[in-house]
Design a protein around this nucleic acid. Sequence first.
DNA 1: AAAGATTTAGACCATATGGTTTAGAAATTG
DNA 2: CAATTTCTAAACCATATGGTCTAAATCTTT
Lengths: 236, 236
Amino acid sequence: MRRGLEFKKKARIIIVDDNYEHLSGIKELIEIESDFDVVATATSASVAISLIKKYRPEIVLMDINMPEKDGLTAIAEIEKLDLGVRIIALTGYDDPDLIFRAMKIGAKGYILKTMASAQLIYAIDEVAAGKIYLPAALSSRFFEYFQKSFREENQELSDEENLLNYLTQREEEVLDLLTQGITYKGVAQKLFISETTVKTHVNNIFQKLQVNDRTQAVLYALNNGFLNRRKVKIAI
Amino acid sequence: MRRGLEFKKKARIIIVDDNYEHLSGIKELIEIESDFDVVATATSASVAISLIKKYRPEIVLMDINMPEKDGLTAIAEIEKLDLGVRIIALTGYDDPDLIFRAMKIGAKGYILKTMASAQLIYAIDEVAAGKIYLPAALSSRFFEYFQKSFREENQELSDEENLLNYLTQREEEVLDLLTQGITYKGVAQKLFISETTVKTHVNNIFQKLQVNDRTQAVLYALNNGFLNRRKVKIAI
DNA sequence: AAAGATTTAGACCATATGGTTTAGAAATTG
DNA sequence: CAATTTCTAAACCATATGGTCTAAATCTTT
């Protein structure tokens, strides 16, 4: 086939699809059109996982639309095993949410069953070579979804509405320390001011943020873009 | 040029680059190789913004590496204006963090200055057509970064390490209410139990999470996957 | 049935936190 | 320079929160 892989180790592949027709179709296609080695196939995620543990393939082609255990959780589980298996997700349609979630949990590629066989082979080639591959069309859809989620989630408050913008420099510093779970005494020490001064600042913060206690102030800060060492969190 | 745009309205473009050499280079290239209409150029972000307000171009080519006001904040500001301008980011190197941040704040494309001119024209074509365009190489880098951030941030704690898993049902309920900024009294009312019972639960929670106060417990919960109505937050 | 964990709840006490007021020093702005 | 804002800090008090211990009722599990 294309791209001299003859001298490389042939990538070993496991294919997972609950539809046996599709499964054998893809298997044949790969065996005919490429140099890859289909070492096993599975029609359910749970079987697939034990096969993966057994054969340690380089690549797994995983259908996402399966009953019982769905493909996404299967991918998550396989990734958690940390066997270095590179998973390519496979579906019938380009639902951006599916694409987003698959890539998020670690899929190294995503292709549609409707795509040409050459595209499939190319994707496997790329992923086997250590890259992450999304066809341009899917990549475009992914980014639309990606950006939409940020638009919606991020700027739900305008600058005037975001009460954090009314805090003074010092109040921000105090609040920043509070969002790290530090007590008033600790804040006082860190900022080299007295504890009563901290209390004064804190009370002003409460007024400005319209909250009643430390926990609420911290929550307000975190939910409204207090740019700390904040962690990335997107619910699956 | 390629792709019959003759009958379409020619896309109007503004180019922003603090390096005048580059600026005129790109300008010439676009004027020669494509049908697009370069309506203005700017060597600073602030000038660019007023030009954009004035000319309302379809496309903006924005260099990211600029002194003074940097390109990313400029993009954010332009996006905030919500003029329907589609921004393509432009840099010398493929720093994945830059790519990630640019796409996050709404860039519709990202290309390297080192890329062939045909690639640039193609990118503009695609973006002008309403798509989001990232060359395969950059897309790959983006996803590596994207996935790494999730790996690091999400499963930094194993199930045994995540102290939240040692909480009982009831303790979880209490903690959940605490993460909503509710006081002990409020929790007692919501759960139809006495306030002293709440205190008992809370103290047990503190023991299990190895923290000393309510705020720290809430922070621990939020940072370790207490899957609430939590918002998507990634610091720019 | 016995053992164990969970949920409930009280007493008791110490301390941290929150509410309000006043006020001087320092920095900023007009 | 005068006016304003910010930062500092104290006094005073009320209440919420945290620490520790004990213990009964309920539920789970063996």
